[in-house]
Amino acid sequence: MMEWLTQEILAKYNYWIAVIIILIGFYAMIAKDNLIKKLIGLSLFQTGIFLYFISLGDVGVGWGLRSGTTYIIEAIPEGYIYINPLPTALILTAIVVSVSTLAVSLGLVIRIYEEYETIEESEIIEKERVL
C-alpha cells in the first residue's frame, strides 16, 4: 500500500498539479461570465497541458521516479543526461499557436465590446434577446 502510494501518487506529483491547473482553467472557461476571464482560463488550460508534456519528456534526476525516456544516442558517454527532445519541440510549437489564438480571440472580444458595449456573457445574451 505504501509502495503503491509512493509510486503512483507522490512520484507523479507533476501530473497531479498539471491536472489541477487544467481543472482551474476549465472552471474559469465554464463558470466565469466575463469573456476576458474565459480567455485567461483557456490559457491556463493550455499551460496545464504543456506542463504535462514537459514532465513526460523530463528525465527523473530528482527522485529517479519520473524517468520515462530512452536515450537518443546509444553511445552517450557515461554521466551525460539528455531529455527527450520530442515533447520539447511539440510544446515549442504549441506555445506559439496558443499566443496566436489568444490574439485572435482578444480581437473578437474587442469587436464584441464595440457592438454590445459589454463583455459579460449574460448581458450579451440579454441584448441579443431584445433585438
Binding site: 461570465d33 466575463n34 472580444v109 474587442i110 465590446y113 459589454t118 459579460e120
Partner: peptide, 11 residues
C-alpha cells in the same frame, strides 16, 4: 484588450 474594454468584472 482590457484597456479597450471594461476593466471591472461584474457579479
Amino acid at each position: 484588450a482590457v484597456s479597450r474594454t471594461a476593466r471591472w468584472e461584474k457579479g
